[in-house]
């Protein structure tokens, strides 16, 4: 069954077509310590995340010697392995075997916490990061209008103005498909496709982004957990999601607040001053994060919901595509 295909460039190590309703798989060379496993096509399909997290789970449970860890993302799993202990060929065969035997996912009801996060839009922290970028890196970036990215974000998605863009951010729950980039950073995707905004990335990337910044690139929303470089369009600020000093009860078990499979919900909208007070309350231990620990996510019900809203979602995508075609990319 295993059919190892190689390209002249050596980048693709194996490729398998779609089988029995399971998306095709491509195994890409990622150096002597990593293997990238990609599922399906490069399209935004959130349901892929349920499959990926399902496969990731069985890989972890059956891990062979030499497999160090897996890094799941929306449509891929990056595998870190020790090439002195397991060959990439054996690793591919192992993953294929797990994928072959993966149970159907359509009827799953998975644990999925709901985490509510307050948000300030076009806040002083975001404006500061953008101002520094204009001053030190690129003054003529088309994605910066009036010292913000939000006006550009509205234009790029065919929305009336930044206020409508902010409403879209708050109108959908965000599925956290993966953590990474920096500690505890969520890669969250909109569960409601009617509000699935899309944005290009910075070019070049920002040298500096403050911790707590909320941004979007592609369809993906991220919260910067630490002060860092970054490539996402940024438009908001929220409470800490990472605390290495574990000063709040929410961080008692781990310095990382969020988990893969969490749903993020931005509410309430707050002012800069209100948010500053909330951040202070996080660090003095009095802020209580609003987390529904026992919530579950019904994949089947979600798939039915997607069908119901499909006409509206299609209409929005159409409007988006037309708008994006008229707007320059950075």
């Amino acid at each position: 069954m295993t059919e190892h295909v190689t390209q002249p460039s050596g980048v693709i190590l194996a490729r398998f077509p779609e089988r029995n309703g399971r998306p095709g798989v491509v195994y890409r060379n990622a150096g002597d310590s990593f293997l990238l496993v990609e599922f399906g096509e490069m399209v935004f399909d959130l349901t892929m995340s349920f499959r990926v997290l399902g496969l990731d789970d069985v890989i972890k449970r059956n891990r062979p010697a030499g497999l160090i860890e897996t890094i799941p993302a929306l449509r891929s799993i990056l595998i870190n392995y020790d090439c002195r202990q397991i060959s990439v060929r054996d690793l591919i065969d192992f993953v294929e075997d797990q994928y072959e035997h993966l149970p159907p996912f359509e009827n799953l009801v998975v644990p999925s916490r709901i985490v509510e996060l307050p948000i300030a839009f076009d806040d002083k922290w975001t404006r500061e990061a953008i101002a520094r970028y204009v001053q030190y890196q690129r003054a003529d970036a088309p994605n910066i209008i009036d010292g913000t990215n939000s006006k550009y974000a509205a234009m790029y998605n065919g929305l009336r103005d930044e206020e409508e863009f902010f409403r879209y951010i708050m109108a959908t729950d965000w599925w956290n498909a993966a953590l990474g980039f920096f500690p505890g950073l969520p890669f969250a995707y909109p569960l409601d496709p009617r509000y699935a905004v899309v944005l290009p990335k910075y070019n070049p990337t920002r040298h500096w982004t403050p911790a707590g910044t909320v941004g979007i690139a592609g369809p993906c929303l991220a919260i910067y957990p630490v002060e860092s470089a970054g490539g996402y369009q940024i438009f908001g600020h929220t409470v800490p999601i990472y605390d290495p000093l574990q000063r709040n009860p929410a961080f008692r078990e781990s310095p990382v607040l969020l988990r893969p499979g969490d749903r993020l919900r931005f509410r309430p909208r707050v002012t800069d001053d209100e948010l500053e007070a909330l951040i202070q309350a996080v660090y003095d231990g009095t802020y209580q994060y609003v987390i529904d620990e026992t919530a579950t996510f019904d994949v089947g019900a979600y798939l039915r919901f997607l069908q119901e809203v499909d006409p509206e979602a299609k209409a929005f995508r159409q409007r988006q595509a037309e708008a994006a075609a008229r707007v320059p990319v950075p």
Binding site: A30, G31, M42, A73, L74, S76, L199, P204, T205, G231
Partner: peptide, 29 residues
């Protein structure tokens, strides 16, 4: 021509794990 679902620039992809030591092409850099 573009990054498709990952974003407007051809250096964009849907986010995935990065190998340690990877050469990451961010826009032109």
């Amino acid at each position: 021509e573009s990054g498709g679902a990952g974003g407007g620039h051809p250096s964009n992809i849907l986010d995935n794990g990065y190998p340690v030591g990877a050469v990451n092409v961010c826009g032109d850099q």
